[in-house]
Each structure stands twice: as structure tokens, then as C-alpha cells.
């Protein structure tokens, strides 16, 4: 099967400091990949670079998404091509209501596909359906974007947005951090409901915990800007048991 995402020899710097030092990664439709690794290894950088965060500079390498050169695209075009990043730290935007935000986003996606804006009643129904599917409180969508949300609410809101935009590739950056077990279940079951043979998910996490709920096909370990090991789901269990230290030491040798 054709690759949905193809990263080759990706080098990324921020403020002159190299953070990613040659990443190769291939993701096919229908797959779930987990990227694990200790703090500061470059996991979030990889996620943000895929979404097009302008703070990062790609110094070498290529990213092909769905046959197109991702690096030439603005963040909004990447989103409309089907990339979705669930942020580790979702931004609070006082004064922008969730309803207006989502309406704008959905309509921009439609415009990109040369479709008419969504009729108001269809939009409200879509909001309600996705909310109910994910078991999300109606209060959340009546407020300003993430304003005053708890950590758990923010992460649920990310998954809600993912459901609304129906991406081809969802990148979940530490979606499990700061979640209690109930919120974790809601978030994970949401991701599972949205996952099909037609899309792919990259789960970035420190811990095995989330992977109990979202079963990966492939597990990568990222350390010091490089993927030092790739294996099946059993790798996550092994790491949970033994930690990263052994692997890191082997990689250094």
C-alpha cells in the first residue's frame, strides 16, 4: 500500500539549535504509530513541524503527505489537506466562541474542496452528533475556545475538533498528559471511533498507559532527534518494564 506520510532524513532547528537530526518515518493508511521517548528527545517538535509551526526551521530532508510536498504548504493548507494536530498545550482564545471557530474551520475545509458553506442547521447537527459520539458535555462547545477549560476538557476539545474536521492523519501530542483515567478513556475511545482504514494516527506519548486503549501497529523510540528503534506493539510493553535507559545506551554504542 502507498504511504500516506513519508518523512526522509528530516533535520529541524530552532534558534540555531538542531533538534531533529535525521528522521525517517513512513505511515500508511489504516495504521496507528506510537512515538515514545524521554523528555526533550524531539517528539513534540516533530508533531509541530508536521503541522507547520513557523518557529521551526527545516534545514534538510523532505516530508511527502498524500503525494504532496508538505514543507511548501502553509499550516492552514496542511490542515485542509488532512493533517490534524492535537496540541500538547491547546491555546486559550478568549472571545472566539467554539461554535464560530468550528464553523469557520469546517467552511474553510469545504471551500478548499470547492464546496458550498455548510447550511446552519446541518452544522448544528454535525456539532451535536460529534459531541454525542464522543460523550462531550454541551457546555464545552458553548464557551470560548479552551478558555478556562481544565486540562482534561482541553484534550477532549482537541478530539472533538478532530471529529469535526475528519483528518487523514491525526497526530496526538501527549494527549494523555494531565488526564485522569475517565478523561483518558473518553479521549482514547474517541480516537478509536474515528480511526478507519482510510486514515492514520500518530500517538506521541511518554507512557504505555494510553497505548492500553489505543493499540499501535508500530512503535518508535525517539531519542536525541533520531529514531533509535522501531518495532511492534511489544516494544511499548518492554519500555514500560525496563525504561529507556538500556535502549539509549545501546544506541550510543
Amino acid at each position: 500500500m502507498e504511504n500516506l506520510l513519508e518523512i526522509k532524513n528530516l533535520h529541524v532547528s530552532v534558534e540555531g539549535k538542531e533538534i531533529l537530526k535525521g528522521i525517517d518515518l513512513e505511515v500508511k493508511k489504516g495504521e496507528i504509530h506510537a512515538i515514545m521517548g524521554p523528555n526533550g528527545s524531539g517528539k513534540s517538535t516533530l508533531a509541530l513541524v508536521l503541522a507547520g509551526d513557523p518557529r521551526f526551521e527545516v534545514t534538510k530532508g523532505s516530508i511527502i503527505f498524500n503525494g504532496k510536498n508538505l514543507l511548501e504548504m502553509k499550516p492552514e493548507d496542511r490542515a485542509r489537506e488532512g493533517i490534524f494536530l492535537s496540541f500538547q498545550y491547546p491555546v486559550e482564545i478568549p472571545g472566539v466562541s467554539m461554535v464560530n471557530f468550528m464553523r469557520a474551520a469546517v467552511n474553510e475545509h469545504r471551500r478548499y474542496r470547492e464546496e458550498e458553506p455548510i447550511p446552519a442547521s446541518d452544522f448544528l447537527k454535525l456539532m451535536r452528533d460529534k459531541r454525542e459520539m464522543l460523550g462531550i458535555d454541551s457546555q464545552l462547545v458553548n464557551r470560548s475556545v479552551n478558555e478556562g477549560f481544565s486540562g482534561g476538557e482541553k484534550k477532549k476539545n482537541e478530539i472533538f475538533q478532530m471529529a469535526m474536521l475528519n483528518p487523514k492523519l491525526a497526530i496526538l501530542d501527549e494527549t494523555d498528559s494531565g488526564l485522569d483515567i475517565d478523561a483518558l478513556r473518553i479521549v482514547a475511545s474517541g480516537v478509536n471511533k474515528l480511526h478507519t482504514n482510510e486514515n492514520a494516527v500518530i500517538v506521541i506519548t511518554h507512557y504505555q498507559r494510553l497505548l492500553d486503549y489505543i493499540k499501535p501497529d508500530v512503535v518508535h523510540v525517539l531519542y536525541d532527534g533520531r529514531i533509535i528503534k522501531t518495532a511492534g506493539p511489544e516494544l511499548a510493553l518492554e519500555l514500560e518494564e525496563k525504561g529507556y535507559e538500556n535502549l539509549i545506551n545501546t544506541a550510543k554504542e
Partner: peptide, 14 residues
């Protein structure tokens, strides 16, 4: 707020 700007863009808003 540049972070807010990027957040909105990352959802497809130009």
C-alpha cells in the same frame, strides 16, 4: 498572540 494564530491556522483557517 502568535500561538493563537498558529492554533487557528492549524485547523484550516487562513
Amino acid at each position: 498572540d502568535e500561538d493563537a494564530l498558529f492554533y487557528l491556522q492549524s485547523r484550516g483557517i487562513p
